[in-house]
């Protein structure tokens, strides 16, 4: 009798807690349904439609996969922009992971001015969402300004350098390559502020005794990196991959997104814009999916 009552009360407490749990996440549920699920399906529907607009509202007319075939076969630049973007996402994400892990390991060591360096590395996160980094590439006017300035500046600065290069038979192309590499590195470093901190947190959670034991057993640093550090922080790889990939959405030099926005705001072709946005979303899901699979099966799995 008393056991049954206790169980009854226990259940009561559980339902009680469940109700409170739902109360707390209620704002999210409302927002999720109203501002995500609904618009998501609506834009999926619109991507199969020709959307006409008048004062009374908008009227989607079903036209099948015409918008998608337009994106892939008719539109002159979408394929190229998209494949460039995929290439950029994949290469940059890998580079960001490598560089941020490397920097995190360095920042995990003791040296003077560590806090200062950490603060600087995190700075781009504060300024990232666009204005400072993105403005130069924001529109064509800016681009022409930039290239004009760069042409002038680099010509004066590197005249003698170019002579040396020409004499040594390397050609001036190498200077462009170096410049390109530096600007790529800059892009990547600017994008890895948060990832560095995430890795750093993971590194600080690894007990030092593990390394001491490995050292006793005669492990080199290289070996203890692959045997201790890497397996223990690999769960963080997924977090950082997801963060790096979603970071591309809001970059102002993301040309696919620029094209989508232009199609929407200037051409008012909502069906086509939705279709392109959905292609982008699908690609992102595939990239994150493949990455999670590799990390969970390949990296984490091999140590279990």
């Amino acid at each position: 009798m008393s056991g049954a009552r206790a169980r009854g009360r226990h259940l009561n407490v559980r339902t009680h807690r469940a109700i409170y749990g739902y109360l707390f996440i209620l704002p999210f549920i409302v927002g999720f349904l109203a501002f995500l699920v609904w618009p998501l399906f609506h834009s999926l529907w619109m991507s199969f439609c020709q959307v006409d607009i008048d004062a009374a509202g908008f009227h989607p007319n079903f036209i099948g996969i015409a918008n998608y075939s337009k994106a892939f076969t008719v539109d002159p630049e979408f394929n190229k922009l998209m494949s460039d973007e995929i290439f950029r996402i994949v290469t940059h994400t890998i580079a960001i992971l490598v560089i941020s892990l490397m920097i995190a390991i360095i920042l995990n060591q003791e040296f003077k001015g560590r806090a200062f360096v950490r603060a600087i590395f995190f700075l781009p996160v504060i300024l990232s969402s666009g204005v400072l980094v993105g403005l130069e590439t924001n529109n064509s006017l800016m681009q022409s300004i930039q290239s004009a300035i760069q042409d002038n500046a680099s010509f004066q600065l590197s005249d003698s350098v170019m002579n040396i290069l020409r004499l040594s038979g390397l050609g001036t192309g190498i200077l462009d390559v170096v410049g390109q590499v530096i600007s790529e590195v800059q892009d990547i470093v600017m994008a890895s502020g948060l990832q560095i901190i995430v890795f750093l947190t993971g590194l600080q959670g690894i007990p030092g005794s593990l390394y001491e034991a490995a050292d006793m057993e005669g492990c080199t640093r290289w070996e203890s990196f692959w045997k201790i550090t890497f397996p223990l922080i690999s769960p963080l790889l997924i977090v950082n991959i997801i963060y790096s990939v979603i970071d591309f959405f809001m970059k102002t030099d993301n040309e696919v997104m620029t094209k989508i926005n232009e199609t929407m705001v200037i051409n008012m072709d909502y069906g086509f814009a939705s279709a392109m946005a959905w292609i982008y979303f699908a690609v992102v899901i595939v990239i994150i999916g493949i990455a999670s699979l590799i990390v969970s099966k390949g990296v984490v799995g091999s140590y279990e």
Partner: peptide, 29 residues
């Protein structure tokens, strides 16, 4: 809190992280 479908709702949180805002912006607009 523990409540039914908690995993599902948390997956929804992950979903709002990975959906590009541009995908829903046409509809919201």
């Amino acid at each position: 809190f523990e409540f039914p479908l908690k995993k599902l709702w948390f997956a929804a949180v992950i979903l709002i992280i990975i959906v590009p805002p541009q995908t829903i912006s046409t509809s919201l607009y």
